[in-house]
């Protein structure tokens, strides 16, 4: 697994530390593991951390059942902080290794008109390995729609 595919493309990535995984469960060490994998996959020079991060990260607003509780306006008000955090990194993609984060961060991009895409970590691992099929690219933008296609 390596980041050769991105050497010339220079597509940039940030990562969302899921509250459940990091602050509420395994702490900063797992946040470091996450960065180790992400950097290996996309290239260290193409990774931009958002601030604050790791155990001090802001919740995106997708947790605790907020996505299903029937308060979409409140949920988006809540998520504005996260949206701006991601937006300010300027990254092309936000890696969201949590289902709720993925759904919320995707929704906020649509709602607030962001330029980033939200993507699962497993998608990028397979992309870098050259084993990502064409039906598995729903959340990739046009820039990566054809890159390193399994053939």
């Amino acid at each position: 697994m390596n980041s050769d595919w991105n050497k010339d493309l220079k597509v940039t990535f940030t990562v969302q530390d899921p509250c459940q995984l990091v602050r509420k469960s395994l702490g900063d060490p797992i946040a470091e593991d996450l960065r180790f994998v992400v950097k290996a996959v996309v290239g260290e020079e193409n990774f931009i951390d958002m601030t604050p991060n790791r155990s001090n990260n802001f919740c995106c607003g997708g947790g605790g059942g907020f996505l299903q509780s029937g308060f979409p306006e409140a949920r988006r008000y809540y998520g504005r902080i996260k949206f701006e955090q991601i937006d300010q990194t300027g990254a092309d993609y936000c890696i969201t290794p949590c289902h709720n984060c993925h759904a919320q961060i995707h929704d906020m991009k649509e709602h607030y008109g962001g330029k980033y895409h939200s993507v699962h970590l497993w998608t990028l691992i397979c992309l870098s390995l050259g084993i990502l099929g064409e039906n598995e690219r729903t959340y990739l933008g046009p820039d990566l729609a054809e890159v390193n296609m399994l053939s």
Partner: peptide, 16 residues
């Protein structure tokens, strides 16, 4: 208060 359904229980407040 409906607020109980808007706090995601993310625990950042405990951290701080």
């Amino acid at each position: 208060s409906n607020w109980a359904w808007m706090c995601t229980m993310c625990q950042r407040c405990i951290y701080a």
